[in-house]
């Protein structure tokens, strides 16, 4: 019936209703996006306003923190610490995580794979302090001192499930025909996986790794009793080391305005670092897909 009316070109009302519904739904979507985006934007603005003055103080990037009463001081110790701790953590987690992800995708359609997946999901749900306890018990208590390395190990375990799941997802998305094409040439399974499937999924794997690194960089709890913090610029991974998240955590709780300002600035720097990592991941993926 309706079909007939439209066909006859008689109903102007119908396109009108369609337009209205279209507008309405479009408006709703914009509203929902705003509701999700506004808090994030407000937060970013807040961090920017509070953090920028501290960031612009001379020495913020180049000096270690000075104690109360000594003018100046920065977060050089924390910048180096965050980069080194997360860097070493990634060196540990990315290869292992990627290999487990490859195993799950290519050889893991079985009980072993399901068990690994289950354990990984449990790990994803653990509060991050648990990884700190892990680093503390396994490394700090056995070596009898706090160290950046123990923090890297804690963060590596925290990053592992993110990386292996990202790798698995990226590999599963590679069309099966590509595997068959490789195998049909008489290539052994492992060569097809490493030479064809992994390169095809590299964008997803790298993105997963970068996102895991960004998450690790923002963690405080796993560092408290592993990296421990250090106001002295330290590059030796066997020694206690500062980190941006620790600077924020500690300085936010002291009554001194200059240290609080430093905490805000460290927060802004951390947000910037994480944002830069995410943007890098996107640029890389776009590059690779072209």
């Amino acid at each position: 019936m309706a079909f007939h009316r439209v066909g006859a070109g008689g109903g102007m009302s119908l396109p009108l209703i369609r337009t209205l519904v279209d507008r309405l739904v479009g408006g709703l979507i914009v509203l929902c996006v705003s509701v999700a985006a506004i808090p994030v934007l407000v937060l970013l603005l807040f961090v920017l306003i509070n953090g920028l003055p501290g960031m612009l103080t001379p020495g913020f990037f180049t000096d270690p923190p000075y104690p109360q009463g000594v003018p100046g001081g920065g977060v050089l110790n924390a910048i180096i610490g965050t980069l080194e701790i997360v860097g070493i953590g990634s060196l540990l987690a990315v290869p292992v995580g990627a290999l487990i992800g490859i195993f799950l995708s290519e050889y893991g359609r079985n009980q072993v794979g399901n068990t690994v997946r289950f354990i990984s999901d449990v790990f994803t749900g653990l509060p991050s302090i648990a990884f700190g306890i892990f680093g503390y018990t396994v490394v700090v208590l056995t070596t009898h001192h706090f160290s950046a390395l123990s923090a890297s190990i804690a963060l590596a375990v925290l990053m592992l499930p993110v990386i292996l799941r990202a790798t698995e997802t990226a590999l599963v998305l590679v069309p099966n025909s590509l595997r068959e094409a490789g195998l049909a040439l008489g290539a052994p399974r492992w060569r097809v996986t490493l030479e064809i499937i992994v390169p095809a999924a590299l964008g997803g794997i790298v993105t997963g790794a970068l996102l895991a690194m960004a998450r690790a960089a923002g963690e405080t709890a796993p560092l408290l009793f592993t990296a421990f913090g250090n106001d002295i610029v330290q590059t030796n991974p066997w020694q206690p080391m500062g980190a941006l998240s620790l600077t924020i955590f500690r300085n936010a709780l002291v009554p001194y305005p200059n240290l609080q300002q430093q905490a805000w600035a460290a927060g802004l720097l951390l947000v910037a670092l994480v944002a830069a990592t995410n943007i890098l991941a996107r640029i890389y993926v776009r590059r690779i897909q072209r």
């Binding site: 109360q68 000594v70 500690r250």
Partner: peptide, 20 residues
């Protein structure tokens, strides 16, 4: 923190890291 900083200036061979 302030005392450790001063001590390290006096005796640079010693670093003291107090973590709270």
């Amino acid at each position: 923190d302030a005392a450790n900083f001063a001590y390290n200036k006096k005796f640079s061979q010693v670093t003291i890291n107090y973590g709270g």
